[in-house]
């Protein structure tokens, strides 16, 4: 039996082989007509990460994001973590955090991944699980100057 992960790995490996190799001129493809072609990151094997790979650094508002984390911007990733305990209802967006308990430490923007599900929604999930999707890395501020996230992922529960 094939697992979802192995199928995605096979597809990711096969897609580059099906594309023209090193075209001298990029073919003209209307934006959005072919997600894989318009998004090179989608062609790569997803990087497997633990939430703590992204969140285990010291950061305060105004600090830069480490270079070794910025390299994940735009990459497809599989991230393992816990759903934030404040999630009570069916949602299509939730914070993914490193520990099931967050009572001991304040949660700053670099302590969670802001996950948005591209399709469907989910109820509360106990225990550790994985999400697959495209990661965006960088500060997002709201109109009041609050940094609302450093890491965002659009994808699906794996």
């Amino acid at each position: 039996m094939f697992s979802t992960r192995s199928i995605i790995g096979l597809v990711a490996a096969a897609v580059p082989a099906l594309l023209p190799s090193a075209p001298a001129e990029a073919p003209s493809i209307p934006a959005g007509s072919c997600p894989a072609a318009s998004d090179p990151a989608a062609l790569l094997d997803p990087v497997e990460l633990d939430v703590r790979d992204l969140t285990s650094f010291e950061w305060e508002v105004g600090d830069p994001i480490p270079e070794d984390l910025l390299r994940y911007d735009g990459r497809r990733v599989i991230i393992r973590g816990f759903m934030y305990q404040g999630v009570e209802d069916v949602v299509d967006q939730f914070p993914l955090v490193a520990e099931s308990c967050q009572c001991n430490e304040r949660l700053l923007p670099h302590h969670f991944i802001d996950v948005t599900l591209k399709r469907g929604d989910t109820g509360p999930i106990p225990g550790e699980f994985e999400v697959l999707g495209k990661l965006s890395v960088g500060e997002v501020e709201d109109e009041d100057g609050f940094v609302v996230s450093l890491f965002r992922l659009k994808g699906e529960i794996y």
Binding site: Y84, P95, R106, L108, P109, F112, F146, V147, V148, S149
Partner: peptide, 12 residues
């Protein structure tokens, strides 16, 4: 009552 990321910043 703010979103997760804003609470500690508002407190600060």
């Amino acid at each position: 009552e703010g979103t997760l990321a804003k609470r500690p910043q508002a407190a600060q």
